[in-house]
């Protein structure tokens, strides 16, 4: 699956995007985040406070309970500040 990071999440993770294959059984966004946090301190900092992390799966807003599959595009970003 393809992961995208924006704004300070991108800076903390250190990448704008990456393609990952999480362990079998990683069925929700929440489980994916738990796995990502094991991948290094950058991820741990980025996902330290999930109240300020917004989630989109295939470019639609969703939450940590959302189901995910291999072909999905999953984006993580802070609350938006356009306009």
């Amino acid at each position: 699956m393809k992961l995208l990071y924006f704004a300070w999440l991108r800076q903390k993770v250190g990448l704008p995007e990456e393609t990952v294959t999480p362990p079998a059984g990683t069925a929700t966004v929440g489980a994916l985040i738990d796995w990502l946090k094991t991948r290094g301190p950058g991820y741990q900092t980025a996902f330290a406070d999930l109240d300020i992390v917004r989630i989109a799966v295939n470019q639609e807003y969703t939450d940590r309970d959302a189901a995910i599959t291999a072909g999905d595009e999953i984006a993580f970003f802070p609350p938006v500040t356009g306009g």
Binding site: F6, A7, A56, Y61, A75, F77, P78, V80, T81, G82, G83
Partner: peptide
């Protein structure tokens, strides 16, 4: 403009 500010994925 109110909805755009809270929904469009832009960051400053």
């Amino acid at each position: 403009i109110d909805w755009l500010k809270t929904r469009a994925p832009f960051w400053k």
